[in-house]
Amino acid sequence: MDAQIQIPIPKDAAIQNQCQEPQEKEVDYAQRAQWLRAAVLGANDGLVSIASLMMGIGAVKKDVRAMFLAGFAGLVAGACSMAIGEFVSVYSQLDIEVAQMKRDQRVQQNGEESDDSEKEEKENLPNPFQAALASALAFSFGAIVPLMAAAFIANHKLRLVVVICAVSLALVVFGVIGAVLGKTPVVKSCARVLIGGWMAMAVTFGLTKLVNSAGLEM
């Protein structure tokens, strides 16, 4: 009887261990921050900046070719700028972390434990090339949306409306993706990027229209 009573004990312990194992594996959202920042901000920047640029050109030019060329030039320039800026920023962070690792190695010198921790730290070091590539690709991906929305529409007013609608939808999608991956409020995230995008396009359109009407012919 004693043996029969003791049989469920290890089974219960095994079940508890199995139940606890998935709980111990938690996603490290802090490590996602760098990629989210480069990807989400890059895509939003591509959307808003290129759409605003095209809206500014559309305020004074009805030619679809002028809008498309301005948007394409902005895409190339913006992607290069984002890549270079991200590379310099992350490389500076890398230099700081490597210098700190060297200082820690001189102070600690704890044999195998320090070697293991050193390997983990090196694996977690930021990669400036990956960050630059991700930022450039994200910017380009976002910038393609207003370009494709305006490329095949001849009517000027309809073209502007389509660009605004396409960019608004893309901003909401990127806002949702960033909020879900980062575990942040979806509504607030979408509202921020959407309102910010509308304001940028409206200000660029209005100021360009104002400057053109003041006597600067294009």
Results as ranks from 00 to 15, higher is better:
164 I>S: 10
3 A>P: 02
2 D>I: 11
55 M>T: 01
211 V>Y: 00
18 Q>M: 13
40 V>F: 01
157 K>A: 12
195 I>M: 09
48 V>C: 05
204 T>Q: 03
141 F>Q: 09
204 T>Y: 04
134 A>R: 03
73 A>V: 11
188 K>D: 14
102 K>R: 07
150 A>H: 06
124 N>Q: 12
73 A>S: 15
135 S>E: 10
17 N>A: 14
38 A>F: 02
196 G>M: 03
99 A>E: 13
40 V>M: 05
133 L>I: 14
166 A>L: 13
15 I>K: 09
214 A>L: 03
144 I>Y: 11
162 V>K: 04
66 A>Q: 15
212 N>R: 00
184 T>S: 04
65 R>A: 15
145 V>H: 03
84 I>C: 08
184 T>D: 02
18 Q>I: 13
29 Y>T: 06
141 F>S: 14
213 S>V: 03
78 G>L: 06
165 C>Y: 13
36 L>N: 07
186 V>R: 01
85 G>Y: 10
51 A>G: 02
200 A>Y: 05
21 E>W: 08
9 I>C: 04
40 V>R: 01
12 D>T: 12
88 V>M: 08
62 K>C: 15
178 G>L: 00
26 E>A: 07
70 A>Y: 03
24 E>D: 11
80 C>Q: 06
170 A>R: 05
31 Q>A: 13
36 L>T: 03
133 L>H: 05
83 A>F: 09
186 V>E: 01
156 H>C: 15
191 A>W: 11
198 W>T: 06
73 A>F: 03
15 I>V: 11
138 A>I: 06
143 A>N: 07
8 P>H: 04
176 V>N: 08
158 L>R: 15
95 D>A: 11
167 V>Y: 01
214 A>N: 00
10 P>S: 10
20 Q>N: 07
20 Q>D: 09
24 E>C: 06
167 V>H: 00
1 M>S: 10
2 D>C: 06
79 A>N: 05
193 V>F: 07
202 A>I: 13
57 I>F: 07
81 S>P: 08
107 V>F: 11
98 V>L: 10
95 D>N: 04
6 Q>M: 13
90 V>H: 02
163 V>S: 05
28 D>W: 09
150 A>P: 02
181 L>Y: 01
153 I>M: 11
100 Q>M: 09
211 V>I: 08
99 A>H: 04
163 V>T: 08
103 R>D: 12
